[in-house]
Nucleic acid binder design. Sequence first.
RNA 1: GCGGGCGUGGCGGAAUUGGUAGACGCGCCAGAUUUAGGAUCUGGUGGAGAAAUCCGUGGGGGUUCGAGUCCCUUCGCCCGCACCA
Length: 854
Amino acid sequence: MTRYNAKETEAKWQRIWSEHCVFEVTEDTSKPKYYVLEMFPYPSGRIHMGHVRNYTMGDVVARFKRAQGFNVLHPMGWDSFGLPAENAAFENKVHPAKWTRENVAVMRGQLKSMGLSIDWSRELSTCEPDYYKHQQKMFLDFLDADLAYRGESWVNWDPVENTVLANEQVIDGRGWRSGAEVEKKLLHQWFFRITKYADELLVAIEALDRWPDKVRLMQTNWINRSEGARVLFDIVGRKDRLEVFTTRPDTLFGASFCALSPNHPLSLELAENDPGLAAFLVECAKLGTSESALEKAEKQGYDTRLTVAHPFQDGQELPIYVANFVLMEYGAGAIFGCPAHDARDLEFAHKYGLGVFPVVCPPDADPKTFEIGDEAYVGDGTLINSEFLDGLDVPTGIRRATEKLVTIGAGEGTVNYRLRDWGASRQRYWGCPVPVIHCAACGIVPVPEKDLPVSLPEDVTFDKPGNPLDHHPSWKHVDCPSCGAPAMRETDTLDTFVDSSWYFARFCSLAPDTALDRSAVDYWMPVDQYIGGVEHAVLHLLYARFFTRALRDCGYLGVDEPFAGLFTQGMVCHETYRDENGGWVFPDQVVIGGDGTKTDRESGRSVQAGRSEKMSKSRRNVVDPELILDTYGADAGRLFMMSDSPPERDLEWTEAGIEGAWRYVNRLWRMIASPSAPIAERTAEAPAASDSERESMLRVLHQTVAAVTADLEQFRFNRAVAHVRELTNHLAEYNASGPAHDHARRIAVETVVQLIGPMMPHIAEEFWQMLGHDELLADAPWPTASPAYLVDDTVTIAVQIKGKLRGTIEMPRDADKASVEKTALALDSVQRATNGQTPKRVIVVPNKVVNVVV
RNA sequence: GCGGGCGUGGCGGAAUUGGUAGACGCGCCAGAUUUAGGAUCUGGUGGAGAAAUCCGUGGGGGUUCGAGUCCCUUCGCCCGCACCA
């Protein structure tokens, strides 16, 4: 018997699939379509185990749906703009384009060696002008439609590098590379008007029934719609009014102060003539945008000495503070504080000696004696001390108070969202240029369509801080398309989330002259099954949902939602190893001695195993997929990825696990390449007669087909693998001789091969050929379970005494209760328990269980 | 703080609507085969017990003829969000 050569066989089938363009598809209205998409990778250099897991899942679904008769679109591309390329340029003096394209080439080869059923003719890369030129056109259309605009926002500014930093690049208030103290700076930025769709995006979440609840909840919270009221307070001694947003206008009678955000226009204005306030604002700015800093910060305020008039109580005035806990970006950037019924306000009031006036009395408390201690009361109750609101419940009070505000012209009911417009400007080189020109005379002028794409210059340097586009000698200098005068190109590039907000639609057709070929997009969209990491639960998925709607409204496509089904996979984890000096050690460097002690192959130091954690370079607990592909082949790697762990949970990568998968590959090989009992020819006719052994084999077989089909349908890959292995075990024990059995063996072997095909496509294809098929397994239809075999004619019924198992009985299916009961009571163990007495009660659940109560 | 998830053998994990807990795999034990094996095959494998039996799904309580599954309570771990007015 020849040993199975995975490397050779896998290369062979990859070649054949590619030569025959097996996975290249076109719009075919005679078949139902199915669009499977995994989140496309950032070309960081090499694929990692997370990619292997993600793309294996997608491929299993794609191959399964394909076998079920769907016209399956399964494309792949590269999310190839982004910061790491610029960092590499800075650190290794490689041009981002070169670095990126080389990485793409390596990773494409790695993905191909996984044997994915991808239509490679649709490959795209977002950093190439043939992709981003369409994006620039979209941007111009969005400008026209007022879906993109220029605005201002606060950013993390690194004064040494002259650049904007992402939140994760700010470490303890300092730039990650320069170490300089990061400043908050107000900068002109390009925005997408996602807030225009806030309500639509929120409401539509409900209909995304094939999305994980967790992701739906996260998006709901992110958008965070809250109903409340805008309240306008007259500022004493001034003509203007202070606007605040509140969800609790019913507690206005309990107000004891107002507070402004440090960034509030009024705060800034007052600071000009108040050095104390100016200093306080600087203090607040120092906190930065980092969450941990904000978290530790104690509530602090500064008394502006201004007061506002209470809208409902003549003569009543409230002091205005500037407070570090009020966010400019939320609501109106100002609040009124009701310490009795808000924890933060209470903390603030205690600190600054402000009044605490309860106005909501809990249902079980006495309004005359109810007092607020250290804890604010935020629950429902009856309004008290509130004049015209007294005696109302909270919802009614809110309504009544809002009506009153409207009547006296001091406010109105309003809906507020946490969701803010999407700031998409990046002061960086390696991104899609924003196609506008700044002209002194004409203002912001869109680049004419005929001049697209605005391409990135290749001759840039990364030796200076700041945006290379900005210091390029000539690139930004152009004539104004409108008046012809010298003008400047926009040097901001777009956030890479823009690139990934429409790539799924672009896969439908790579037509060169149009971004989205409407007929192709109408055929394929939406994506039926999208698969990726949960880390994109909010931003990427929300932006893509917004972008799809924006494209819809600009006539690019006709769907609302990009992803009809979403699956978020778990992470790939591995044990961690540290040597006696505390240094991390790579798993493949750890040698396990006979006594179980571990040592580092290179240093010879002894090594301790730590808990299993997400694979990461910093902890060195990584296994290179290429090593696995080389050693065991793609099929074994893919099989292990699908076995054991449910796909939504973390998977623990272990040597033993991959070995087990590899053993199964070889076991199947032995069973099929050199079977211990004959397998009938393909052309052999079904026997006229069967026996019970054969029938029972066929029953297991059909039940397995049904189970695996259901499992794959529901992303229960680990169970699907278990079921196939069970069938394999049955097949291995099935050695009866004779033509009827040989025939059944043929069916069983073919079924095993077909069922395992989505997980292990190469060896399955090889088996299919060995079994005499001329056509490809990839083109073979999925097996169907025959209903006749799905029900057993005898059933095993559990016999319990007071719920405890005492034995089992074999009965014909659907036997009548009386005979089941009689058989059960006749059991020795039951006789012993009943001791000859009549049982108090006997419960018979048909075909399942008999419970005897004594 | 708020929200969500998870706790089942030595390990990863199975278990339709409440109905035989531990499928499948790993590991381990015994045997067979082999020059050898970290290959392969056979059998065994939740714990205690000679057995009958008893105990077992993080802990405690409850509902039920019957609970991993439902309810209450408690502990532990993980994830997400967070001064959201």
